[in-house]
């Protein structure tokens, strides 16, 4: 029973931050600089989500995540589709962990 309560509580506190913006953007008109700020959020979020998190995929060996990340950068840079970037990075990490 208490677990069910915890789940519902977790659900409410994750739902509210996600949903409130859907209602407030209809009510608000933002200044230009705020729009520029909000348009930059995806890139900033990607930066903050990638690093240093990528180092933690193998907690003992941060270089494995680092190398996997670099493989992804190269594959993406040559213009491969995201799915091949992902598969290439998985393969490189797999090879690194099994061979080294």
């Amino acid at each position: 029973m208490i677990i069910l309560l915890i789940i519902i509580g977790m659900s409410v506190v994750t739902m509210l931050p996600r949903v409130i913006p859907a209602f407030i953007v209809d009510k608000l008109q933002f200044k230009d600089w705020v729009n520029r700020w909000l348009n930059a959020i995806p890139y900033a979020a990607l930066g903050a989500l990638i690093f240093p998190g990528v180092l933690s995929i193998n907690a003992d060996k941060p270089h494995i995540g680092l190398i996997g990340g670099f493989v992804a950068i190269i594959l993406a840079y040559v213009g491969l589709n995201v799915i091949f970037v992902v598969i290439g990075a998985i393969l490189s990490v797999f090879l690194l962990t099994t061979l080294l």
Binding site: Y43, L49, I50, V54, I57, G65, L80, V82
Partner: peptide, 14 residues
Amino acid sequence: SMGIALYAMFIGLL
């Protein structure tokens, strides 16, 4: 190894 997947996706998007 698949733990790199989402990071690679983020990189592939960025």
